[in-house]
Amino acid sequence: MAYANSSGAARPTHVHPQATPGYGKRSAPDQEPRRAGDFAHLPAREALIAAFVDRLPEGAAMDAKTLAANIPAYGQAACRTAIRRLSEAGHLRMVKEHRKGDGGSMHWVTRTYFSRTARGDAWWETFLRGDVVPEARHEPPARSEAYDALASLGRTDPRMTLSAADCRELEELATEWLTRGASPRDLARELTAGLPPVVHFARAMARTRLVDKMPPERVKQPVSAPLRILECTICRTPGRPEAIPGGVCGPCRGETPPEPDYAVAPAEVHDHAAEIRAALRARERSSR
């Protein structure tokens, strides 16, 4: 039960410092809602620090030095180890991003993406490419904005009151209006303006107007994926995701780097250098 009390103890008693603008904590997308026991699978220290980081605002500094200064129970070394283990458990990655600054110029910033929901290497690799990574949800589906706009027509003009079945039938057309840039207010205005004194079939009237007054398609602007490079959580060396599993590079995992693949064997290089030196000495003697 150490974890149950740890999140409360981890809360700062003062304002946590922010990182340099553009740096610091970023929340990973599409996380599960916060609930008790989110980090119960982690050791007590990592669970406490994860709960602390989870509640930090966007852009907060979360380097080992800052964490140690704000979590009295642990020093910098312990926080560095915890950050590594949170990375290996799939809760965070350090990412270098190419971003536009306030002056309009592009520059590199380092951000620490934190995910309350543990992610595997494949998920993080997909995220680095800029792809959307939808997660399965278990909540009941919410009503769409288009459905709500149709359901509210009766409040704008009682002659255009629609039933739930009417709203479901017309929802796809209304959604297309919103996709093309119309607002719910635009939709309500166009469906209720200039009505005859009596509307006998509101659904048919709404369908006709939704089709006949459909806004033009919006010109889609190309969206470029953000340029992101993964960094080792320990030494900050950049690399491809497959070279940094768990967010930790091979040398920091204790792996021996492979021997360099020389085009020429070292012994041949030494022999060739000796031949060159001998030739130079012979030339010097002959020129005397």
Rank of each mutant, 00 (worst) to 15 (best):
M1W: 13
N5S: 14
S7G: 11
A10N: 07
V15G: 05
V15Y: 09
Y23N: 02
Y23W: 13
S27R: 12
P29T: 10
E32H: 07
A40T: 13
H41V: 10
A47I: 06
I49C: 04
A51I: 08
A51V: 11
D54M: 05
D54C: 03
G59M: 04
M62Y: 02
T66E: 05
T66I: 13
T66G: 08
L67K: 06
A68C: 13
G75K: 14
A78C: 13
I83T: 06
A89L: 04
H91G: 00
H98N: 15
G101N: 15
G101Y: 10
D102L: 15
G103K: 14
S105G: 11
D121H: 11
W123A: 11
W123Q: 05
T126K: 15
F127H: 04
G130F: 03
P134Q: 13
H138T: 12
S144D: 00
A151G: 01
S152N: 10
G154Y: 00
R159D: 02
D166W: 03
C167G: 01
R168H: 11
E172M: 12
E172G: 09
R180E: 02
R185T: 15
D186H: 13
L187I: 12
R189D: 10
E190N: 14
T192R: 12
L195F: 06
P197G: 13
T208G: 10
P216C: 11
P216M: 15
E217S: 15
R228T: 07
I234P: 01
G239F: 11
G239S: 06
A243T: 12
I244M: 06
P245L: 03
G247H: 01
C252I: 08
C252H: 02
R253C: 05
G254D: 03
E255V: 12
P257H: 07
P260R: 09
Y262W: 13
A273H: 07
A273Q: 09
E275V: 13
E275Y: 07
I276E: 09
E284G: 08
S287A: 14
R288A: 10
